[in-house]
Design a protein around this nucleic acid. Structure first.
Lengths: 332, 332
DNA sequence: TTGTAAGCGTTATCAA
DNA sequence: TTGATAACGCTTACAA
């Protein structure tokens, strides 16, 4: 490996002068600067970021922990976050949590260990309360998603309740009266699933419709679960004319399930999703969905990391992304 | 920051002994080990990976450069690579190239600069020939995808030609005779698009069917392009009863385009894709596709990085992933 | 404007 | 079995 000393020797100056040139610091005469630059060219020198980091205590890398980038939603989110980070000169190291509490905790520990400059954590199941508040010291963590974070941590969320409520009311406006909610793993506690379910309940309530427990299907966040939920509803003889799916991914499974049963969408059953993943517009029928402003969220998250890095004492902030309901064929 | 020296002082031993304990090295007596571990607990010490790296000359991080993780295929691939890397103790930093030559070159430069231990590059457009052979010294780069890499670089590819040929023959076996190829941006040179197109041509040739240029639609690698391609074929009055799409993503667009025109799949037009992205099985109709063994590719790629790190002089290797044709409803 | 010396937190080496 | 010392490549502080 070519080091600064090598360059220095070649240019006939001291290490320090090379350092000054490399970092574009003032106080180096032009001829010397030129000589150093030539030497750098000549021997193909590259600055060792690690050594610099060792001194500075920063890495320029932020961690991103998501359940898995193989899921459309997190792929899209990851992509936007990587771009947003790039804008501010950060690189991104990805950690996959598998949507498990251990995975999410491990991600925090890892980023700490790797001395990343911060971590953006898409918390699906982790309960920050159980982590003993600010147990992470002032390591900059931004939480994405929906948990009961209290006011103790930077958080970028989206309008889960309002979004699902709007989706539910949209179905009602289209004439649906027996609306199923194909939702996630549990309705206990505070997380994406429970909040979105709450929006469904509120949407119904706003129009005086009572919740029929038979129409609420706890499944999981994958396509297969959405499909199975529809099969189960059908097998149980539960009639329904609309479905509020907890995510677009689940909605894809739901629509597939309908196809399995020979039910037409939207004629027999209307479907809405949540997230507006890239595929949503290209399905047949295209999927009506709640679209949070993901780019906005990504930029906000990186901004919060940068801000906390500058001032570790600043009070935590909470931001909620705006959303739009995008009507498409699945509810026509 | 708590350092080894702090722990050493607290435990009343030398830095070196702490290092030995932390790294689970033999030759430390049990009582001393215990004492050190207690001290570590007590002061909340964490190993500074950076300092270790500085010594080792390694970072433990490999770069992964793909066009964008928001595309299902690269999301899936990324996910598998992250897991494979984890298996071998590597972390992954992601770079997005936007499928542009500059992006791909920049990714190489960046990984160099960040002193990553290696780079796995999903090269879509970069021409290694133009890069002057081994201009990257012995920085471990593994190329994924299909380019004319010569024998000069580690490469993990897939059976693009054989796969598409099989897909084409599958359509023929199903009775299709007017088979369109909705393909990428260009058929010049050697890359995924041209190789897969070649497979299409071979598949037709094997059954004595001549290529009708009107049936070959150069589009691009996104859903919208697949949709547009179908619209264009239709507008031009070109009849077709089958479509070989260059990727599953494009195939989704194709199926959407068929729906736009009121054409039924598979009754009017049968469709095959390539990649087997997670959504393929859940579309309605589900998508017949060529499924390369992605997990195998991911593991191979990481393995090659590790091997070159161990022995920079080893000759470059080329590996081609096996594939399976998965028949589904879109060609029933 | 340039150079010297010390030190960042870790590990390899060798001596005790 | 343990410890002292010298690196790793760079930057900060200060001297020339």
């Amino acid at each position: 490996m070519v080091t600064m000393s090598d360059v220095a020797r070649l240019a006939g100056v001291s290490k320090m002068t090379v350092s000054n040139v490399v970092n574009n610091r003032p106080g180096v005469s032009d001829p010397v600067r030129r000589r150093v630059l030539e030497a750098i060219q000549e021997c193909g020198y590259r600055l060792n970021v690690n050594a610099r980091t060792l001194k500075a205590g920063r890495t320029g890398v932020i961690g991103l922990a998501v359940p898995g980038v193989d899921q459309s939603y997190y792929g899209m989110l990851g992509s936007l976050l990587i771009e947003a980070a790039k804008e501010r000169g950060f690189h991104v190291a990805i950690e996959q949590t598998g949507a498990a509490a251990e995975g999410e905790e491990a991600a925090i520990a890892q980023s700490h260990k790797l001395q990343l400059d911060g971590l953006i954590l898409s918390a699906v199941v982790l309960d920050p309360r159980e982590q003993g508040g600010t147990a992470w010291g002032d390591f900059p963590i931004v939480m994405l998603g929906e948990r009961d974070f209290g006011a103790s941590i930077d958080h970028v969320g989206m309008a889960n309740e309002a979004g699902t409520k709007a989706a539910t009311e949209h179905l009602i406006a289209r004439g649906c009266r027996r609306i199923a909610n194909v939702t996630g793993w549990s309705l206990e506690g505070v997380h994406v699933v429970s909040r979105r379910h709450r929006g469904y309940v509120e949407g119904l309530a706003a129009h005086g419709i009572e919740v029929d427990p038979a129409l609420v299907s706890l499944s999981g966040m994958h396509m297969e679960r959405g499909r199975k939920a529809v099969h189960d509803l059908h097998a149980a003889g539960t009639a329904f004319d609309g479905v509020v799916a907890v995510t677009d991914t689940v909605a894809i499974g739901v629509m597939r399930g309908l196809a399995d049963l020979g039910l037409r969408c939207p004629e027999d059953v209307r479907v809405v999703g949540f997230d507006d993943i890239p595929e949503a517009a290209y399905l047949a029928p295209s999927l009506t969905t709640v679209a949070p402003d993901h780019r906005w969220m990504a930029e906000k998250a990186v901004e919060l990391i940068a801000a906390r890095l500058d001032d570790p004492t600043r009070p935590p902030e909470e931001h909620i992304a705006p959303f739009t309901l995008i009507p498409r064929e699945s509810t026509r």
